[in-house]
Design a protein around this nucleic acid. Structure first.
Lengths: 159, 159
DNA sequence: TGCGAGCGGTTCAAATTTGAACCAAATGAA
DNA sequence: TTCATTTGGTTCAAATTTGAACCGCTCGCA
């Protein structure tokens, strides 16, 4: 409770690099995807995530948790994407109140066409800029950061 | 032109860890700051950045670039913070068209009161979770990522 | 001196995000 | 069964963000 344990230079460098690179990269990707295919990064991630789910579908809440968006935010985005024909809503089989978001065939082809440019951008901006050791450190270190926060939220209330 | 050079597992791990940890951390900090002091992370960063500038003031555009926000977005936020008495707007001495955002004494005390909790959160969520080697890798690697993107934008059009 | 392009900021409307309030279904204890 | 609580999603209004249009300076140059 005593005095604050401020960040030293070494720590500050890491912190600043982390925060600012993340913001820049996100912005850059958003722009690239929007120009290329009219998708936001979030929409791309939604398609990606649904596409991976073996049934091509996922519960709203699970999707929201995975993609770090509020529930209402996801409702909105799925609404937009439904209008655009990229996903559909379907009732969850085993639960009358549950809703599944499902990727449509059109959604899949959109994703397929968007993916190459996206991956290339990710490489150019981040992956290929890092050394293998740096990638490993990031995977391990930031992976742990993510897991710890995710665990905290496990009984997760909202979002 | 040929086929896409997809990410392998090792690369994918790093990429996912990077993106998701950044999103989670940002959300977490936003929440902590808002509860503690009614500030958004962006507002905190604005105060922080201005406080560091020796004159306590900075050009709007420079601030926007530094904080990765669109110009209009910054105009909006500075407006809000001006209402709250945290910053003032002042004309740039050497340029009739320039505007300086300047932190007020009240802004400084707000920052001082917010800082300890914020730093503690940053430590708890990120810095203290990483090993020194990981911090170094992140500072170096992601620092390079940031600089490369920033350089691209140097002749920077908007935002 | 006069003009045209570019810079620095703001304004404005539209899109997105957030959190609180709400509703229906599910759970679970009496 | 019955009622209180919790879940899962949506709705709604308010806050924020974005990009395009705009306006007044600045600068370079004829």
């Amino acid at each position: 409770m005593g005095h604050t344990n401020w960040l030293n230079d070494e720590e500050m460098d890491a912190w600043i690099a982390f925060v600012s690179s993340a913001a820049l990269v996100d912005r850059e990707l958003d722009q690239q995807l929007k120009e290329d295919m009219g998708l936001s990064h979030l929409q791309y991630q939604i398609l990606m995530t649904l596409n991976r789910a073996e049934s091509g579908a996922m519960r709203m809440t699970e999707l929201a948790e995975r993609l770090i968006n509020s529930k209402s935010g996801l409702t909105y985005q799925i609404g937009q994407m439904e209008k655009a024909g990229l996903v559909t809503r379907r009732q969850c089989e085993w639960s009358k109140s549950g809703v599944l978001a499902e990727i449509t065939p059109e959604g899949r082809t959109t994703l397929e066409r968007a993916a190459p440019g996206h991956v290339e951008a990710v490489r150019e901006l981040v992956i290929d800029v890092l050394t293998p050791e740096q990638r490993r450190a990031i995977a391990d270190g930031l992976g742990r950061v993510r897991d710890r926060i995710a665990d905290t939220k496990q009984g997760g209330t909202c979002w």
